[in-house]
Nucleic acid binder design. Structure first.
Length: 207
DNA sequence: ATCATACAGTACGAAAGTTC
DNA sequence: GAACTTTCGTACTGTATGAT
């Protein structure tokens, strides 16, 4: 057990007496990393969805911004994270894109609880087929989005560019499995009826 | 049939709890 | 005591479910 008069760690946070402590009595905080941490971040060549790479990068930098009370600590942590990502085959451009809009100057907002009453995202929903990639949906939407943006009514209805989402086609399970049993039209004395009866009254054992 | 919501599953971090 | 699992919170998107 470590004992210190100037700092203490809690989970991934280090709380310490910084420069302003003498004059204000206010403690500082920064990210705590265990000495045994090996930084084996998800390799960019791994077969994961793009959102997975983007998600954890943004999540990490957001964590640094929230935990560091001094911008210099935040920058130091973010830079070393960037260097480690580069060794894991990420490009500087995609690292920057993942954290685009995340500004340490807005830390107060980052610390505020998330507003969950924001408008739901606009989703362009279509059914998935193996040939969907050849349709270049995103390019087509981007190319013709100006038709909506230039229309007075449509631009008000659809102020934001949509996210493309695919609905799965019905598979065998969808066709064969239902979440409810159909109305029991047969006698409860059938095998199925007895099972249902016992499920409703677990105190009665199977016979 | 459609829509909204909850949850699943991928990732990151840490310590605490559980199992063998 | 080592190894494994759980917990909590953040990001992302797709799926399952229940209500209308």
């Amino acid at each position: 057990m470590e004992i210190s008069k100037t700092e203490v760690t809690y989970l991934d946070l280090k709380i310490f007496k910084g420069n302003k402590f003498q004059s204000t009595g206010i403690l500082d905080t920064k990210v705590y990393t265990k000495p045994t941490e090996t930084f084996q971040y998800l390799d960019r060549n791994s077969a994961h969805p793009l959102a997975t790479f983007k998600g954890f990068i943004k999540g990490e930098v957001l964590r640094y911004a929230r935990l560091c009370s001094n911008e210099s600590d935040f920058l130091e942590k973010r830079n070393s994270f960037t260097e480690r990502l580069l060794t894991r085959s990420y490009s500087p451009e995609e690292i920057a894109a993942a954290t685009n809009g995340l500004d340490y100057k807005q830390r107060t907002n980052l610390l505020a609880s998330k507003n969950i009453e924001t408008a739901p995202p606009l989703v362009f929903k279509t059914t998935y087929t193996p040939h969907i990639k050849t349709c270049h949906l995103k390019q087509a939407l981007t190319k013709h989005w100006n038709l909506i943006a230039s229309d007075k009514q449509l631009s008000r209805l659809f102020p934001d560019y949509p996210t493309i989402a695919y609905k799965g086609v019905s598979n065998l399970k969808d066709l064969l499995v239902k979440s409810r049993f159909p109305p029991n039209q047969e006698s409860d004395e059938t095998e199925e009826g007895l099972i249902l009866k016992n499920l409703k009254d677990p105190t009665q054992g199977f016979t």
